[in-house]
Amino acid sequence: MFTQAQSDRGRQLFRDECSECHYSSEMRDNAFQYEWERRTVGDLLDHVSGSMPDDDPGSLTPQQYVDVIAYILGLNGFPTGTVELAPDAPGLATPLKSPGS
């Protein structure tokens, strides 16, 4: 669904854009999984791109947003592959319930 290189880009973006307010461990803990277990990767992308950064939602590019989502998927145990996640990829319909849960 996403590649390691994409996840690495997302990690750097997370550090630059998200860590002002969020720890990465918040993106995979019990509370995160409780909140998102009934939703899809696309829902998370819509949420993040529509509401983050908190004071300037939508200010990242679509590619940057999916890179951040790829990083979060990696945190939640989703395996890397050979194809990058794209803003309109079929993988967006994947349930967010963590593979490890």
């Binding site: 998200c18 860590s19 720890y23 990465s24």
Partner: peptide
Amino acid sequence: EEEFEEDEGGF
């Protein structure tokens, strides 16, 4: 018991 992690996300 758990902690916010420092090895990721610029802690």
